[in-house]
Design a protein around this nucleic acid. Structure first.
Lengths: 134, 134
DNA sequence: TGTAAAATCAGACTAAAGTATGAGGGCCGG
DNA sequence: CCGGCCCTCATACTTTAGTCTGATTTTACA
């Protein structure tokens, strides 16, 4: 029985040798094709942009020249305004700028007038809004 | 001459019929393989992530509770501090909160003590730094 | 229920801040 | 060279801010 079966197989293989050969070639080259496709195909590139919140990197202050000229605030007055914003008293500002208290009072009064306010806290607040100080 | 060439070709084709056949099969199935690969394989996706710096859009203010408890500033005192930062005088703050001027003076004095400052401008400046007010 | 913190207010005082007015000197452009 | 602006300073005065002391009431909490 075994022998018979084997003979049958042998016959089949021999008589269909070409077809088997062709099939093997087909199989091998199909695999080759798949492999080629995988190797050669360019990957699709998907670009994902991620918005990253940067915690206020640039404290870069740019003076608002327009507002400055519109208010008519002078260089010295702006200096006083900056120190004022730093929380200094008129006395301390005077010492810092090597001038008298009277001078600072005059300057600050002028600043208040030009900014249309009546208190230093308001002046600082408005000056910041206008971009006159950081 | 032409005839000779043709004969030569013919001979070549016939004698190598099998190889040509095999080659064609190989070619066809290579293409099939490529096609299969294209159809069946998931498309390769290469994900490129790009970090994009965005300059903090939201000026959303979040109160710094830590600093608040550390300084020991009470709710009412914080209210006064906020109005103070708005440039209001003690008189105006008193009117706004329906209390007397004395009360506001007491509150502000307490705030100055807790923030370790001596002037309202300094208090406002420091409070902003600490995240107590916007 | 006692108490500690918070909120309220007052009076008195000191210290700043702000206003008003005037004035002198420096600098610049018409 | 003069008028206008800026910077400076002073004096006098008013207003606001800030300190200190002391007190009452409310609220929250153990």
């Amino acid at each position: 029985m075994f022998f018979m079966k084997w003979l049958e197989w042998r016959f089949l293989i021999i008589s269909h040798a070409f077809e088997i050969y062709a099939g093997m070639i087909a199989a091998v080259f199909t695999v080759l094709g798949i492999w080629l496709a995988q190797k050669l195909s360019k990957p699709k590139i998907k670009v994902v942009t991620i918005e990253k919140e940067s915690p206020v990197i640039g404290p870069e202050f740019i003076l608002n020249e327009r507002a400055l000229s519109e208010t008519g605030i002078s260089a010295r007055e702006l200096e006083v305004l900056e120190l004022m914003a730093g929380g200094l008293s008129n006395q301390e500002i005077a010492a810092r700028l090597f001038v008298s208290l009277s001078t600072i009072k005059t300057h600050s009064s002028n600043v208040f007038f030009k900014l249309e306010v009546q208190r230093r806290t308001q002046a600082v607040e408005k000056a910041k809004r206008l971009g006159l100080i950081p």
